[in-house]
């Protein structure tokens, strides 16, 4: 009996008692945000990288193992991860991260969604009935999510409440300053007509006042076809777009093909943290996004 007790003690001693809060972030932007808000109080792992399509990730064994131990799941929601996250949650056997629990955080619950379809039909491609899930392309959304996420961290890990509050305030201050800077920098972009590979930039277009002309994908989630690209090229004469934007994880061939023929630049944007070398954190993400857009637009 004594031995057993000693063994239990030993196990307890080996396991870090005051271990950091284990967070599994579905996308890098939420991983980066949790890191900003949690500092050394959180231990963040990412389910996807900026070079992976968050719509199509495999519920691979390593992710199931991470979901098993996670205390907080920080994801986008709005159907973005529908092809793999439900399997992770089901197979994890982890009560804390089940839908409806505080440990299941969906960022898109806290922003006003755009592109909410009035018609939900798979003939229209991979439509999300909840609205466009790519909310992280507008930094004002990041600010809203940061407030909600900080509250969630406080709720799950009340012992470090003060730290989360303090860091959230600090982040909000820096973010507000950066927002003002970005808005000023991006002012010349207002009204610029753009083509997008995937309809993933609605929130950014809304933020910067970019004029969305068309998507290279004939339908959301359907790979660009030669016929559709040709069609866009023809339409360029009437509604000329000034640049093509595509995300770091996307195949550049379609954008390059069109850019060459339409004689407009194809601009690769980081889309999330880590998408380009300069997008090291959330601030770098938008610094680089705006720098690339300005360069592409020749401003």
């Amino acid at each position: 009996m004594k031995k057993l007790f000693a063994a239990t003690l030993l196990i307890a001693a080996v396991t870090p008692a005051s271990a950091a809060l284990k967070v599994l972030a579905c996308e890098p932007e939420w991983g980066a945000l949790v890191q900003e808000l949690g500092g050394d109080k959180v231990d963040v792992t990412l389910a996807t990288t900026a070079l992976q399509d968050p719509h199509h990730v495999q519920a691979k064994p390593s992710l199931i193992a991470r979901a098993r131990n996670a205390e907080l799941l920080a994801c986008t929601g709005a159907g973005l991860e529908i092809g793999w996250l439900p399997v992770l949650i089901q197979q994890s056997g982890n009560a804390a991260i089940q839908p409806g629990k505080p440990g299941n955080f969906a960022a898109s619950d806290f922003v006003q969604k755009l592109d909410v379809p009035t018609r939900v039909d798979r003939a229209d491609g991979d439509v999300h009935p909840e609205g466009n899930p790519h909310i992280q392309t507008d930094p004002r959304n990041i600010a809203k999510v940061a407030v909600a996420l900080a509250q969630r961290l406080e709720q799950i890990d009340p012992a470090n409440r003060a730290t989360y509050q303090q860091r959230a305030q600090d982040f909000a201050k820096r973010w507000d300053a950066a927002l003002a800077r970005w808005s000023a920098q991006a002012a010349p972009l207002r009204g610029t007509p753009i083509l997008a590979q995937h309809k993933a930039w609605t929130y950014m277009e809304n933020w910067l006042g970019l004029q969305y002309v068309d998507a290279l994908e004939p339908k959301p989630g359907v790979e660009p076809t030669a016929a559709h690209l040709q069609e866009i090229l023809t339409r360029q004469k009437d509604r000329p777009a000034k640049l093509i934007v595509y995300a770091a994880y996307q195949d550049a061939r379609s954008a390059d093909w069109l850019a060459e023929r339409a004689k407009i630049p194809a601009v690769q944007l980081p889309f999330t943290v880590g998408g380009t070398p300069a997008a090291k954190d959330l601030f770098g993400l938008f610094d680089d996004t705006i720098a690339r857009l300005l360069k592409g637009a020749g401003k």
Partner: peptide, 9 residues
């Protein structure tokens, strides 16, 4: 007072 976050639903 920090702006309170409430789910938009």
């Amino acid at each position: 007072a920090a702006p309170q976050a409430a789910p938009v639903a």
